[in-house]
Design a protein around this nucleic acid. Structure first.
Length: 428
RNA sequence: GGUCCUGUGGAGCAGUUGGAGUGCUCGCCGCCCUGUCAAGGCGGAGGUCGCGGGUUCAAGUCCCGUCAGGACCGCCA
């Protein structure tokens, strides 16, 4: 007999079926016992009356893996309108050691550190797994959107010989006796691949050894990177980003509707054109001093509220960040060279994406490094490529965990990360 | 890295100006309950109050140190 999932029960009323999953909860009454079985699709109620089966069920612990064979009946008093009666129950493993929290309650009451310490079981809670399903659906939407636009997915090294962005802290490791680093970004490689495919994207981990102990930082996170050639300037990149974010949200709505329902989340609309403000105007809107080189988190929150009130948008572009605060490969604004053709995308007041137009002439790279008093040698393999013909190009990187956290209203990116890696956490 | 906050049975919390027995909810164990829905009723077990030192007749409570966790900031996706 083929196994079916809990959500398929209504299609099998009157038939004998085989279910398998985890003991979500047992409710033992005098004359009847209920066994709630959880599987990948949801929950199924099994009604136990026979004394010998009841004795078996009484001996099971929550989270034990079981197989149930029984008859499906429609019953309005059952939670899903259907239930399985006259079952045989067969454990598929030894009785499970129950986790230190109750997975069968609507909300997981354990504190975040407790959940993270016991991630393998905490993630089984429907609210936690829903966040991961949404994450997966968002990535599927990301790929689908870019595939339709002739982008090619690439895979670049995560162990590199020199740091990508000057100043940022890197994890050093030993590579057959030579110093090496975990990649902080696929930035250089995705630019080089523009020279091959014109349009590329990558989904992969990046590593930041910066001691930022906050609700929106991880030492390892998933970066959704995009780079495309033959752009006029950063505005072409912003248009692709707009469509990509819309495609990610469409992917979530299409593939993770159940997860959205579980969390009570509705997918926000992406304006056909996301409102954009120049950095200098953004400072004024946020009430920051005019000379500030960057936006503080409090300023970003204020801008998020402003975009909501002024445009009814959850998204806001901030363009023209000062060149001084952007990496050396950033293309300046030809009209105002102190400002860049770089942008951030704020999602509900949090920085979600950084992007921009890049330099594409070899001489510009040499000048940019010289202006920052940086040697060329560490970047030689990267900078040399620009001697061989590179189109005007640009791109962006979306922080996946931030995207999901903002989407579902999670206070901490760790709530939407299966096994977060941060300053203090290296296990599980 | 800076500032502030918190560590009390398995989980989440309360514990007042230092004062007799650390309490509550949930879980766990036992008994009861004809259909539960985070089931319900009765009873029970389980705690070096993070760790070390100090003040005091007396410390969960005050002081110092230390370890762990959290929030904000710096910085970033």
């Amino acid at each position: 007999m083929q196994r079916i999932l809990s959500t398929q029960l209504p299609a099998h009323v009157g038939a004998s079926v085989r279910l398998a999953g985890w003991v979500h909860r047992r409710r033992l009454l005098k004359s009847v016992a209920f066994l709630i079985v959880r599987d990948a699709a949801g929950l199924a109620q099994v009604v136990v009356a026979a004394p010998d089966v009841r004795a078996q069920v009484e001996a099971l612990t929550e989270e034990t893996v079981v197989e149930v064979v029984g008859t499906v009946v429609a019953n309005p008093t059952a939670p899903a309108g259907v239930e399985v009666v006259e079952p045989t129950v067969r454990p598929l493993g030894p009785p499970a050691v129950p986790p230190p929290f109750d997975l069968y309650r609507p909300v997981l009451a354990a504190s975040l550190p407790t959940q993270l310490d016991h991630a393998s079981t905490a993630l089984r809670h429907p609210t936690r797994s829903a966040a991961l399903r949404i994450s997966a659906a968002a990535v599927a939407g990301f790929r689908a959107t870019l595939d339709r636009r002739r982008f090619v997915e690439v895979h670049t090294p995560k162990v590199v010989g020199s740091s990508t962005e000057s100043g940022a802290n890197v994890f050093a490791l030993d590579w057959f006796g030579r110093p090496a680093y975990l990649a902080q970004s696929p930035q250089f490689y995705k630019q080089l691949m523009v020279g091959v495919f014109e349009r590329v994207y990558e989904v992969g981990p990046v590593f930041r050894a910066e001691p930022h102990d906050t609700v929106r930082h991880l030492a390892q996170y998933t970066s959704l990177d995009v780079e495309l050639g033959f752009v006029t300037d950063h505005r072409d990149v912003m248009a692709v980003l707009r469509d990509t974010v819309a495609g990610m949200l469409a992917g979530v709505a299409d593939r993770a509707g159940g997860a959205l329902d579980t969390l009570g989340v509705t997918v926000p609309a992406v304006p056909a054109e996301i409102p954009a403000v120049h950095f200098t105007d953004a400072l004024a809107i946020a009430g920051a001093p005019a000379g500030e080189p960057d936006l503080a988190p409090a300023h970003e929150r204020a801008l998020g509220e402003w975009a909501r009130a002024e445009y009814g948008s959850d998204f806001l572009f901030v363009t023209g960040y000062p060149m001084a605060k952007r990496p050396f490969y950033t293309h300046p604004d030809p009209a105002r060279p102190a400002y860049s053709n770089g942008f951030d995308l704020l999602f509900r007041g949090m920085e979600l994406v950084t992007g921009g137009q890049r330099l594409h002439r070899h001489a510009d790279y040499l000048a940019a490094l010289a202006a920052r008093c940086e040697p060329v040698e560490p970047y030689a393999g990267y900078v040399d490529a620009f001697r061989h013909g590179m189109p005007p190009h640009g791109g962006f990187a979306i922080g996946l965990e931030r995207f999901v956290a903002r989407l579902i209203g999670a206070a901490n990116v760790r709530e939407v990360t299966a096994f977060p890696r941060d300053l203090h956490r290296l296990t599980p």
